Simulated assay, not measured.
Amino acid sequence: MAGVVATAATAVGLFAGTNIDDLVVLAVLFLSSRATGVLRAGQIWVGQAAGFTVLVAVSVGAALGLGIVPDRWVGLLGLLPLALGALGLVRAARAQRSGEPVPAVAATGPASVMALTVINGADNLTVYPPVLRTIGVGSAVVTVVVFAAGVVVWCLLGSWLGSHRKIVEVVGRWGHWIIPAVFVIIGVIILLGSGVLSTIR
């Protein structure tokens, strides 16, 4: 039981850390829905669920494909989120110096919300497969269930945030720093936890 709780807690942290940007997108979508009425709240829920299902399905498939890779080398995949996070931090610093605006989010229906979710969460595909591959089948199932619950919580939070324009602005401002920092941390954890560095030495 303790193992399941620990796995669930880890999955919660993984979901939250890799989807802060998605929360910002959801908040903006719900805000836009209230302001324009073009996109209904139900369409946002459906699109978000469908998009994240695609991301998880691709991640599970990729994790199964990693079965041909010896366990001691799977940890090298931690370099992907590490590099992505480092690049994100560089871009965030560059954007801050140049004063670049945050790109606008546009969607008109469930399909466009789904596409937005997949595109926005594509970087998660560098994190989820190696994690799912290294934690075992039982823990992977628990993780996927937590992710499903996370989508519901994210939509609820996004709806709440979307009713507070100031909160959207704050989350949007700091999210550019938090998200890549989390990816760097995840990459380091994968590298250290897998023991691949010891194998290399």
Rank of each mutant, 00 (worst) to 15 (best):
N19A: 12
V4N: 06
P180Y: 00
P180V: 01
P129E: 07
V137H: 03
E169K: 03
Q96N: 13
V4Y: 08
D21A: 02
S112K: 13
V171K: 00
G162P: 07
S32P: 06
A107F: 08
A86T: 09
W154H: 10
L80V: 12
V137G: 01
R173G: 02
V24M: 04
G47Y: 12
R165C: 12
A149I: 13
F30H: 08
G150K: 08
T126R: 01
G99T: 11
G138P: 05
G187F: 10
A41S: 12
V182N: 10
P180Q: 00
V113N: 12
F183D: 03
L87K: 14
V153G: 03
W154Q: 08
V170K: 11
F15N: 10
F147G: 02
P110N: 13
G78S: 08
V131P: 02
D22A: 13
G67D: 15
S163E: 15
V152D: 04
D22V: 11
A86E: 01
G136H: 10
F52K: 08
I119T: 10
V38Y: 07
L79E: 00
A8C: 08
A27I: 12
G88S: 04
M114D: 01
V152Q: 05
A63G: 08
G99S: 05
G195Q: 09
I135P: 01
A11I: 09
G162N: 06
A140D: 02
V131T: 05
V146N: 02
P81S: 02
M1S: 13
G150A: 07
G158L: 04
A181W: 00
V182Y: 11
T126S: 10
V182S: 12
V60A: 10
L39A: 12
A115Q: 09
T7M: 03
I185C: 14
A83E: 01
L23T: 07
A41D: 13
V28G: 01
